[in-house]
Design a protein around this nucleic acid. Structure first.
Lengths: 219, 219
DNA sequence: TAGATTGTTAATCGATTAACAATC
DNA sequence: TAGATTGTTAATCGATTAACAATC
């Protein structure tokens, strides 16, 4: 068990998928799972799962596979999900409101603690249990709660400056819903939620197919 | 200009980012951009941009760079955004409603034509301009409008069966908001919007940092 | 022309997969 | 024990980058 090699980011990004699948297996009452079976569920090769896990230790039993509950606990621990990371949301438009209401976010590992918006019409209003605070309060709230994680759901033109405030205040990880690439200092982690870009990459294939169909017609 | 090599999917996924950045440049009134400058905006190397574009043709001028408007037109054409692909949405909970209201979706390339949900309380209601239709109507609507693209925003347990109906009806590309991996036949394109997984991959790094800080404290 | 930047090739880097000894 | 499956190594595959001749 060498421990020198640090796991590549791409492996880190797959771990949450493994965890999620293991949670479903647990719900189904399945006790053991092989890398083969787990792989089939998430469209990943058995080799890849075993290789990914090998960065963190040895969790399986030859001839048996993995104990679902134990492996899940291990992965959640590796991912830092044994604690709840306090999180803030900036931007409470339609999207921000859907985020506040989305049960998915009330999950292991993260905990929303405050929401911010600069629209005077929204200030003081409650969304779910959270009062909408002005963005001036970002810095004190982030510092008071040691918030390291934030969701940016403001319109594109404001995303960079909001990000700058968050980072300045001490946030280290940002989930960005705005259609922009954020410029952040080294050591700040950013992930994007970008449905339009995802759609636009699929239209490419639809267009290719249509082209092919038209060619066949003409032939 | 060889045309034998087919562009890898990872290149196709970057094209929409290039397009988006070019749109911003156009808004700013910038006429020419080098691969270097474009790369800096989206945190990608100049080499990568030039290599990516080379799969599709020669769009730049030595010594000058790329004509922003022209390159954008080229990329949009490549991505199949010269036409609007009709699209349906299945699932009109908080999330689905936010999607219907999100202006970002009223963009070049895709056009929402119908929304579906099986909640009897919602049937017949309007969300924006769209009446909520029962899922029985998926197949006829998809076939009538030749819909090839769909958004799945139903709860996880229903996502696979909804997907099956969509594919059966003729949909070829799916944007999935449910936290599951869909099983689809070859030649069906799926992209996932998965904020929780994104958060859970960042907590990994936060946890590592915290560990490091604690070690320093002890030292 | 001189300077800048492309398009493309080859080198490098990194990720995935196949294979198998170890072992439950 | 026999069968199954792990963890790990080495081979393969693919993507990124550096470098540079071509050329605007």
């Amino acid at each position: 068990m060498e421990r020198i090699e640090i796991p590549p980011d791409i492996v880190i990004r797959r771990l949450p998928l493994y965890a999620r699948s293991l949670r479903y297996l647990l719900d189904e009452g399945i006790q053991f799972v092989s890398s083969q079976e787990l792989g089939e569920r998430i469209n990943v090769t058995a080799s890849q799962i075993r290789k990914d896990l090998s960065f963190f230790g040895e969790f399986g039993k030859q001839g048996i596979g993995y104990d679902v509950a134990k492996l899940l606990t291990h992965i959640e621990h590796i991912l830092g999900l044994s604690q709840d990371w306090p999180m803030v949301l900036v931007g409470v438009g339609h999207l921000g409101q859907a985020i506040v209401h989305y049960e998915g976010f009330y999950t292991k590992g993260v905990k929303l603690v405050a929401i911010f918006d600069n629209d005077p019409a929204k200030l003081g209003q409650h969304i779910g249990e959270f009062p909408v605070l002005s963005q001036e309060h970002i810095s004190p709230v982030v510092q008071t709660h040691s918030v390291k994680m934030a969701i940016v759901a403001v319109p594109a033109p404001q995303a960079q400056s909001v990000t700058d405030s968050l980072v300045e205040a001490g946030v280290r990880a940002i989930l960005c819903y705005a259609p922009v690439i954020l410029q952040v200092p080294d050591g700040i982690y950013v992930r994007y939620i970008d449905p339009i870009t995802a759609l636009h990459s699929m239209t490419y294939y639809l267009a290719r197919e249509e082209e092919r169909e038209n060619q066949e017609e003409r032939a």
